[in-house]
């Protein structure tokens, strides 16, 4: 019923329709999604939370167009997704900053492609804007090898943003960062989102991060993965750092954490069972 309310506010852009995904490997097949259905509305910020290996990256890959579901379909504005496109920007778990390009050329990369070509003056304007916004001014001519992890992360964000995608697909974008940098990056993301609203799917292991950033959280179960719970985050946008310290935030956080912990525990006991039966 909560989902119904959300849908009436937003017009739905992405839809998972009875999606199952099976990987055939040398050690037999793994089912990573089983009959998953959900929708993401326009301008929504949806987080996917769930135990490691449950298939979060796989789901994002299907939206990005790198993989097809085994059965069911993933729809973009009602049409099955065939392949990658520049309207769906992806931020990968390990950055994917181009090492052979300087910071500014990394940001400009997408703007030089035929798909989103802009005039040179406009390109320079956009690059300048993001270099400054991401705090990379000193390093604009540097190569990525001289950047810290947090700076690479910001660069990847700037590069995605420069081509102004309608969707941002983010795979644990802040996973490798220390707590302080991580908080700063979350606020930066909220800031940037405040400028131009986008439809976002974010994978994270941090309940706190999911609550702070998203409008909805999908809790995914251990394999074979299903949507275990959908949590509407009741806080409005724009959000500020005070939200983190509020009592309502803390309550919801412990509630969601509890739920997620159950799933992580379920996965662990599953793994242990498999181990003991394997040894027998």
């Amino acid at each position: 019923m909560i989902e119904g309310a959300a849908m009436s506010q937003h017009n739905e852009r992405i839809r998972f329709e009875n999606v199952s995904k099976v990987f055939d490997t040398d050690n037999g097949s793994i089912q990573v999604a089983e009959d998953v259905s959900f929708g993401v509305g326009d301008g929504e910020f949806v987080s996917l939370v769930g135990p490691s290996g449950c298939g979060k990256t796989t789901m994002l890959n299907m939206v990005a167009g790198f993989m097809q579901p085994t059965t069911g379909s993933v729809l973009l504005d009602g049409n099955p997704i065939q392949g990658p496109g520049s309207e769906r920007g992806m931020m990968f778990q390990d950055y994917g900053v181009f090492p052979w390009l300087s910071v500014e050329d990394n940001i400009a990369f997408g703007l030089r492609l035929r798909a989103n070509r802009v005039s040179e003056a406009r390109r320079k304007e956009i690059v300048d804007h993001f270099v400054e916004l991401m705090g990379l001014t000193e390093f604009r001519r540097a190569y990525p090898k001289t950047l810290s992890g947090g700076m690479r992360q910001r660069l990847a964000l700037a590069r995605s943003y420069a081509v102004n995608p309608e969707f941002l697909l983010m795979d644990e974008p802040f996973g490798a960062l220390d707590a302080q940098t991580r908080t700063a990056m979350q606020d930066l993301l909220l800031n940037v989102m405040g400028e131009v609203r986008k439809t976002v799917m974010l994978i994270t292991h941090s309940v706190e991060e999911a609550l702070y950033l998203s409008s909805r959280i999908l809790v995914i179960s251990a394999r074979p993965s299903r949507i275990r719970r959908i949590i509407e985050v009741p806080f409005g946008f724009p959000r500020t750092a005070e939200l983190r310290d509020s009592a309502a935030f803390a309550d919801l956080r412990s509630e969601v954490r509890e739920l997620v912990m159950q799933e992580y525990a379920a996965q662990e006991s599953q793994a242990r069972q498999k181990q003991t039966t394997g040894q027998a």
Binding site: A64, G65, F66, G83, P84, G85, S86, R88, G89, M90, F92, D94, G96, F98, W100, L101, F109, G110, R112, L113, R114, A115, N116, R159, S160, V163, P165, L169
Partner: peptide
């Protein structure tokens, strides 16, 4: 394949991926 995927999500065509990603690598 990561860099190729990144380029694809930025909208690169196959020939652009070849010229701008694969050649430098």
């Amino acid at each position: 394949p990561l860099y190729i995927r990144v380029a694809q999500t930025l909208g690169a065509s196959d020939s652009e991926i070849f010229r701008k990603v694969i050649i430098p690598l």
